[in-house]
Structures are given as C-alpha cells and as structure tokens.
Write a protein that binds this DNA or RNA. Structure first.
Lengths: 203, 203
DNA sequence: GCCCAATCTGTCAGTAGCTGTCAATTTGGG
DNA sequence: CCCAAATTGACAGCTACTGACAGATTGGGC
C-alpha cells in the first residue's frame, strides 16, 4: 500500500495553516487584501514573518491555496463517475465540489466577502484563474484516461477534451459572476445548471 | 468630433514603449523572464529603472500590455459584424485579430519563444488569463448592446452572453495549447476552427 | 521514559518589484 | 521665441520574498 497515515506532524502543520488562513481572511475582510501586510498576519498568529512563508509560498497562496486540494478531489470525483456518462454531465458533477466553497452556508460573514475580494483584487483574481487552469489540466488528463478505458481514446492531437473542459470551466466562472452580481442570493448550484445548459459539446 | 490626432508626444511615447518591449523581449528570450531584472532592461534601453516604470506599471505589463490594445480592437470588430450573424460565428471572426499575434509570420525568432515563456511562467500566464478576462468583459458588453439593437435583448440576469463568451475564449486557450504542443506548426487559425467546432451554444 | 535525528523557529541580511517626491531638464506648440 | 507641461534621474522607502544559520522543539523508535 502506498497509503500513509497523516501522522501528527502533518496534522499540526495543517492546523497551523488553517490558523493562518483564518486570521488572514479576517484581516483581509476588515482592512482589504493589499492593505494587510504579511507582518500583520504574522503578528495576528503570533509568529515571525519568516514562518508564515514556511507555510505559504506567497501571500496569494494564503487565499487560493485551498484550490490545490480541490483539484485533487476533482480527479477522485471524475474517476468515480461511470465511464459511459456524457462528459458534460460528469463535469457538472465535478463542479458540485465547488458549491460548498462558494455557497458556504453559515459562514457568510467571511466566505462571501472573500469571494468578492478575489474577484475585485487583480492579483488575486489572476491567481484564481491560474488555479482553475491547474484544475483543468488534471481534468483533461482524467478525461483522456477515461476515454481509453472506455475503448474510445482521443487522437493524440485531438483538442476535444481540453476544449470541452475549458468550456465547462468557462461556464463555472460565468455562473460565479452571475451569482455574485445577483447579490449571492439563491443557490450557486442552480446558477451552474443554468450556465451549463446554455452551451455544450457538439457531435 | 471626439477624434484626436495622436500628436507628437503620444507618438514618441508609443515609440519608447516599443523600444522597451523589444529590448525586454530579447533579454527574456536570452536569459529567461525571472532572471531578467528591470535594471537590466533599463540599462539595455539606456534609461533609469524609474523611467521604465513610467512606461509600464508592472514588469508583466511589458509582456502582456499589448492585449489592452487588442481588447479595444475586438470591440471594433464585433460592432462591425452584422447583427443577425450567429454569435458563435461573430466570436470566431473576433479571434482572427489574435492570429497575427500568435502565428506571427517572420519573427518566429522572438514571438514563438515569448509565447512559450508566457505559458511556462506562472506569473505571466496568470496575467495573460487576466487580460483574456478583460477582453471578455468588453465582448459581453458589446454582445449585450447588439442584442438590444437587434430587438432581442437578454434578460438582465441572463448569464447567456457571458457563458457563450467564456466558452469561446476557452476554445481559444485550448487551441493555443494544442498549437504549442504540436510545435507551433500549421496555422493557428485552423486550430481555432477545430476547437470552436467541438463545442457551441445550444438553443 | 529516553534520546537523537528530523523538523520547526526566530533573526538577520539581502534582492527585486514598485512608489512617492523633488529638483533639474527637455520640449511641444502657441 | 518662450513658457507651461511633460519627462527625467536620483534618492529614499515600503513590501513581498529568499538564503543561511544557530538554537529550540519534538516525534517516535528503542
């Protein structure tokens, strides 16, 4: 087995990371992202600036780092879907993973303002788009493998899997725009449904 | 008339900007983007670091700044298309604008390496994605206006124009991936055609 | 429970991107 | 020809980020 128990060391590491993100997010919402300094965050958590950088490579990563984890989960979900399910439907299921991050019931005090901060701060928005691109890379790989498993592999130069994935993620971002513009009311899942019914693969 | 002659001042400004980008691109291709310092660029053009920042707000802007200009051109092209043309076809025509930037015939010595640098340097790629998003904002506005002109306006909460635009731009990026992966041979326009025939709007 | 190697930590020094200020110089255009 | 406006370099300063090192902490096998 290549499985490994998290071990105490890893667990405390995650705990400290969460402490930092929580403190940072509070500050970001209070004072704004750019107005908050790494030293501010370090002081709030009670550690040195250098140590904060031992948990997060960049300031942006404090905000968007969680999406690395989401990207992994996406692969699990996608691989768990039936191989004969239409690709567009599988992708729709994959996006269910993001719903709790966006539509977070309960912590509307922090989650929603943070979302606006991401969309309004150029540096953060760029990082977010980049993470989405990373997710797409994983999805494209999984989709390619799945097609092979199903006995209908894509040609090596066929752009189809990437195009379909890109279109689906485009729907995702558009849905998020619409949802935020409408005041973050209503269900985010419904916004995705609506977006993904507007375009789709051709055959 | 709200038209204004460029005036000598503006023209020299553009000229200096071009001088900087040319010198910078050469250095970027030679030594890499991150290994090249603003001071290096300033020295190469024979001005102070401070002055370089008077022409470009950020280092990334030296590379991706030209896309602001492209975004404006896109609006012109889109507004010049017949109002009854299918949206997907109009967007395909808009993308013709990007072909010369990517498929640049002649200066393959710089244009193609720079493209790889953009895709391989995280900071640059993120900026590029952001510029694409900016272009989309403009396109969505133009599309909305056009629908009004045609007497078939979108509902204010209808995500359709943004979704379709996002899907089209997704095709664009996927096409660029495929084209670069195939060694930048063949026509980029054909890659876009292929990508945009894989997905599309539903009605 | 003991102990050591592995990990974590703070401190310090340094680099690069980027900004404000100001005085000196250049220059477009009337 | 001349002046108001724009451009410039020099300097100081801030913040994100990195490398190095010495000392403290601690997980986990014995």
């Amino acid at each position: 087995m290549n499985e490994k128990q998290p071990g105490l060391r890893d667990r405390t590491r995650r705990a400290v990371q969460k402490e930092i993100t929580d403190a940072a997010n509070t500050l970001f919402v209070e004072r704004g992202y750019e107005a908050t300094t790494i030293d501010d965050i370090a002081a709030a958590v009670g550690m040195s600036q250098r140590s904060v950088f031992r948990y997060f490579a960049t300031k942006e990563e404090i905000v968007v780092g969680k999406f690395d984890f989401v990207a992994e989960q996406m692969l699990d979900v996608l691989r768990g879907r039936p191989v004969d399910e239409p690709v567009w439907d599988s992708l729709r299921r994959v996006f269910d993973l993001l719903v709790p991050y966006v539509d977070a019931p309960g912590h509307h005090e922090v989650a929603e303002p943070m979302q606006r901060i991401v969309f309004d701060t150029p540096a953060l928005f760029a990082s977010y788009l980049q993470k989405l691109q990373l997710m797409q890379d994983g999805v494209v790989t999984a989709l390619t493998e799945r097609a092979e498993t199903a006995g209908a592999p894509y040609a090596s130069d066929d752009p189809a899997p990437r195009v379909i994935t890109a279109a689906a993620f485009g729907c995702l971002v558009a849905a998020q725009y619409a949802w935020l513009a409408a005041g973050a009311k209503g269900s985010f899942a419904a916004a995705i449904d609506r977006a993904m019914s507007t375009v789709g693969p051709r055959d």
